[in-house]
Computed example of a mutant assay.
Amino acid sequence: MSRFEKNKRERFLNENSYNALMKGIASRLNRVEQLFYNELPKRSDAFRMYSQWSATISNEYFEQFVGQYSAGVPIEELGAKFTKVVEVSEADSLPHPVYKTEPFYLDEIDAYYRILALLSLAKLLRYDYLVPRIVELTNVAHDDNRGTDALYETLIDKLGLPSEPAPKVMSMLKAHPILLELTQAPPDKQPKLMAQFLKKWYGSMRGCYWHNRHKRVPQHFSGYWAFESGLVTYLWDIDDSSYRDLPFYPKDLVDYARTHDAVPEPEPDTGQSGTPQRPSIPAGQACPETGWWFTPAKADSRRYFKAGEVMPSIDSDYGETFWQWSPDQSPPKL
């Protein structure tokens, strides 16, 4: 048995297909991020293309992350990558000062799956400070999302965030009412209900973009995971011994959450005076303040940006591009 076969978590995943998937994602991300970060401000159709390209970037980073979990990448390594998954989701869905974005709508099955996955991953990876940021993705279209799904609001409440009354689970969801019932059931009934949910989950998600992808030739899928089953198991402290080996249950994430403390939220840098400094801005995000900025990715890179202008990526060996507020705010001398 190869190392890949030994380590993989997704039973349907094969090594050649996984390698092709990761290579394809990397290629698409490289191409689209170059367009998004470098070409967007120059285009006459930038208002429309921002939404299209940011959605592609968000989807590819998420698929890459799920694929790596399926392939058996260590949880600690995945955790270090998860912040990026959230950041590109925010760039795609939160309001932008210049360009058009598209919020999540929970009555769309793809969006419902993604939000529950992000919420579950944040908590199970113990990046607790990211949970409110993920909830904010649904608050953008507040009246369309909040108070529309009882399971989502129950999870929000259990996570310690303000919830809103909701009469029932979305009508499109066939298995999730079982999960809602579980949250209200006595502890001795919960494992059986979870097993019922897991056995029904995949078939009930017909219509989701990834459904039946493992049957394609060539295979093209990142893995099937009911991440919310792990979140509920963890939050309600359920004994999962009777269902932990069922398909779609992310047992490694639950085990990790139960044995690790929350990751501390990064603190903003402060100067010698103790006053907060302006944060570094990753390429692709809007400039938060008009002025002169520079990036360590390139020598003599000091440049003037207007608030709302997209800050570009620099092709260099330095790594990802982050723009920093320049101590020198004077215009260049002629």
Rank of each mutant, 00 (worst) to 15 (best):
S2P: 09
F4M: 06
K6Q: 11
N7S: 12
K8Q: 09
E10T: 11
L13P: 00
N14D: 14
S17W: 08
S17V: 10
N19C: 15
A20R: 14
A20G: 13
L21N: 09
K23I: 11
N30Y: 11
N30V: 06
Y37E: 15
E39C: 03
P41W: 07
D45H: 08
F47Q: 02
Q52K: 09
S54M: 05
S54L: 13
A55Y: 07
T56I: 14
I57Y: 09
S58Q: 14
F62P: 00
F62I: 09
E63P: 00
F65K: 01
F65N: 03
V66Q: 09
G67D: 10
G67P: 01
Y69G: 01
S70L: 09
I75S: 01
I75Y: 04
I75C: 03
I75P: 02
E76R: 00
E76C: 04
L78C: 11
V86S: 02
V88W: 06
D92G: 10
P95E: 14
V98C: 03
E102L: 15
P103V: 03
Y105M: 07
E108K: 12
Y113P: 00
R114Y: 03
R114Q: 08
A122K: 03
L125I: 05
L130K: 03
V131R: 00
E136Q: 12
T138D: 02
H142P: 06
H142E: 13
N145S: 03
G147R: 07
T148E: 14
L151F: 02
Y152N: 07
L155Y: 01
L155A: 05
K158M: 07
G160Y: 06
G160V: 02
E164S: 15
K168M: 10
M170T: 13
L173V: 11
L173P: 00
A175L: 12
H176W: 12
P177V: 06
P177H: 11
P177N: 10
I178P: 02
I178Q: 00
L179K: 02
L180T: 07
Q184R: 12
Q184G: 10
P187N: 10
P191Q: 05
K192E: 14
M194D: 06
Q196D: 12
L198N: 03
L198K: 03
Y202P: 01
G207I: 15
R213Y: 09
R213D: 11
R216L: 08
R216G: 05
S222A: 15
Y224S: 04
Y224I: 07
W225C: 03
A226M: 06
A226C: 07
E228P: 00
G230M: 03
V232G: 01
T233M: 01
T233H: 00
Y234H: 15
W236M: 15
S241E: 08
S241K: 06
Y243F: 14
D245I: 08
P250W: 05
P250Q: 08
L253N: 01
A257Y: 00
D261A: 10
A262V: 06
V263P: 01
P264D: 07
Q272H: 13
T275Q: 15
P276A: 14
Q277L: 15
R278L: 15
C287D: 04
E289A: 14
T290L: 08
W292G: 14
Y304N: 05
Y304G: 04
E309P: 07
V310L: 07
M311N: 04
D315G: 11
Y318L: 07
G319H: 05
E320V: 10
W325L: 10
P327M: 10
P327G: 09
Q329S: 12
L334F: 13
L334N: 14
L334K: 12
